[in-house]
Amino acid sequence: MAPMHAFANPARFLRLARPLTAPLLVIGGLIAAAALWWGLFQAPAERLQGDSVRILFVHVPAAWLGMGGWTAIAVASIVELVWRHPLAGIGARAAAVPGAFFALLCLVTGSVWGRPAWGTWWVWDGRLTSMLVLFFLYLSYLALADAASKDGDGQSRIPAIFGLVGAVNIPIIHYSVLWWNSLHQPPSITLGKSEMAPEFLWVLLAATVGFSLLFGGVVLARMRMILANNQAEARLRRRAMEAVDA
C-alpha cells in the first residue's frame, strides 16, 4: 500500500504527471496514427468481410477502452471507498469522459461496420445492448460526479458506489456473445491465443497501444484540470471567508 499512499499528496502526484502528460499524448498519437494509416492503406482486404474489416482498427481499441475506462473507475472507487485515497475519486472522474467517448465511438463504428457486414445498422442483441447500457452508465456517472462536486463539500461517496455497482456490466459485455445468440462474432483474441491473421493482429495491437497511451494522457490532463480547479476554488473560498471575518 505504501506506493499507493505516496501519491495521496497532490504535489507529489503532479511532479510525476507534469512530465508524463504531453509525451503520452504525442507518442500515443503517433503510434495510433501509424496503425490507422497502415490499417487503411496497407492491410489486405479480408476474404469474407472485404474492405469493411479495416473498421476493426478503430472499433476494437474503442471497445477495449470503453470497457477499460469503467474498470479503472471501479478500481479507483474501491480505493476511494476503502482507503479514502484523495486522488482516487479525481482519477475516476477524469477517466469517465474518455471512457464515455470510446464507448460511444465503439457503438457508432460498430453500427457503421454492421451495415455492410450484417446488412443492418443495429440489432438488440446482448453485446450491442450491454455496450449501449455501458454508455448510459457513463452519462449517469458523469451527472452524479458533477452534482457531487457542486453539492456540499465535494466529498460524496455516491459516485464511487455507483462506479462499483456499474462494474457488473463489464463481464456481461465480455461474455454476452457466449451466453446469448448474437450476430456479433465471439472473441478472436483470448489470453495466449489468437485466431486473427498476423497482418491484422499486429496492426490491431499497435492501434490498441496507441489509443491506450492517448487515453492515459487524457486522464492525466483531466486529473490536473480537476486538481487545479479545486485548488483555485479553495483559495477563493478561503479569501472570501477572510474578507467576511475582517
Binding site: 502528460t21 499524448l25 498519437g29 495510433a32 490507422l36 487503411l40 474492405d51 469493411s52 479495416r54 473498421i55 478503430v58 472499433h59 474503442a62 469522459v97 474518455p98 467517448f101 465511438l105 457508432v108 463504428t109 457503421v112 461496420w113 451495415r115 455492410p116 489509443f211 492517448l214 494522457g217 487524457v218 490532463a221 483531466r222 490536473r224 484540470m225 480537476i226 487545479a228 480547479n229 483555485a232
Partner: peptide, 30 residues
C-alpha cells in the same frame, strides 16, 4: 463505411485530446 468510421475515430479523438489539454491549461492558469 470505412472512411466514415476512421473520420469519426480521428476527429473525435483529436477533439477529446484538444478539449482536455486546453481545459487543463486554462485551469492551471486560473
Amino acid at each position: 463505411f470505412v472512411y466514415a468510421a476512421y473520420a469519426m475515430g480521428v476527429i473525435g479523438t483529436v477533439g477529446l485530446v484538444a478539449w482536455s489539454w486546453w481545459g487543463m491549461r486554462r485551469a492551471e492558469a486560473r
